[in-house]
């Protein structure tokens, strides 16, 4: 069943991505002010949103793990964080390329950039810590605690840096601006690509969760073998 879901998600995502790429590169015109480089936004924004959704879900799963003690939540949270970190890095790299072309610099200490980077660092620490703990139940508890601390920290970073320097473009999607800031055809493309990327991320998470569960089974078999 799970294999079918993974395969289905991946297939639909691939088809949608192919359609999106065709639209983005061959159908949509260049943007008036930025030229061709604006197309990177179709990956930059969905990657950011995918990462954010991932961290939020991981936070929820961590709290769920602490209240129920089911290791399934922990495996899922770990898989999601791993995939989210990948998309956050995609987000930062694409943003950096865009910034080089438009601003002339690779990086600036803007609040969105800084908080995105802090977020990646914190969740990298989460992934590194997981590797340092052998015992699955202890690992789950400590990782859940770290995830909660990390998410709270990201919120504080975001709110505190917001007060001062901002160079990053303001919101463009009409759910945040009320519309008028972006051409509807382009906005539709962003959403379509978001959908494709989210499905891809979901497929990756399912594969990773499966691996986590298998790793846990192997660990338990090894313990059984050692005990006997």
């Amino acid at each position: 069943m799970r294999e079918k879901v993974v395969f289905g998600l991946a297939a639909v995502s691939a088809v949608l991505l192919a359609y999106d790429l065709y639209q983005i590169f061959l159908v949509l015109p260049d943007e008036a002010a930025q030229g061709a480089i604006y197309r990177i936004m179709f990956f930059h924004i969905p990657a950011a949103i995918t990462g954010m959704i991932g961290y939020f879900v991981a936070l929820t799963l961590s709290i769920l793990y602490l209240s129920t003690g089911r290791l399934r939540y922990d495996s899922l949270a770990a898989s999601i964080v791993e995939v989210s970190v990948v998309f956050s890095i995609v987000n930062i790299v694409t943003g950096s390329i865009w910034a080089r072309v438009i601003w002339g610099i690779w990086w600036t200490w803007d609040y969105r950039l800084t908080s995105a980077l802090v977020c990646v660092l914190i969740f990298c620490a989460y992934l590194i810590m997981r590797r340092a703990i052998e015992e699955p139940t202890q690992r789950a508890r400590l990782s859940a605690a770290l995830c909660i601390f990390g998410c709270v920290d990201v919120v504080i970073v975001w709110k505190s840096i917001e007060w001062f320097r901002t160079q990053h473009p303001g919101p463009v999607l009409s759910i945040r601006t009320g519309g008028g800031n972006i051409d509807p055809a382009m906005e539709r493309m962003i959403y379509l690509n978001l959908l494709a990327i989210l499905m891809m991320a979901a497929a990756m998470v399912l594969v990773r969760t499966r691996q986590e569960q298998t790793a846990r089974e192997i660990d338990s078999l090894r313990r059984l073998a050692n005990a006997a």
Binding site: V118, L121, I122, A125, I128, M129, A132, E134, Q138, D153
Partner: peptide
């Protein structure tokens, strides 16, 4: 109680201390 305790601590706290 972790392996590499002395390495893990800075890796975890420095990003959290940024703000």
């Amino acid at each position: 109680n972790l392996r590499l305790r002395e390495l893990m601590l800075p890796i975890i706290i420095y990003p959290l201390l940024i703000p």
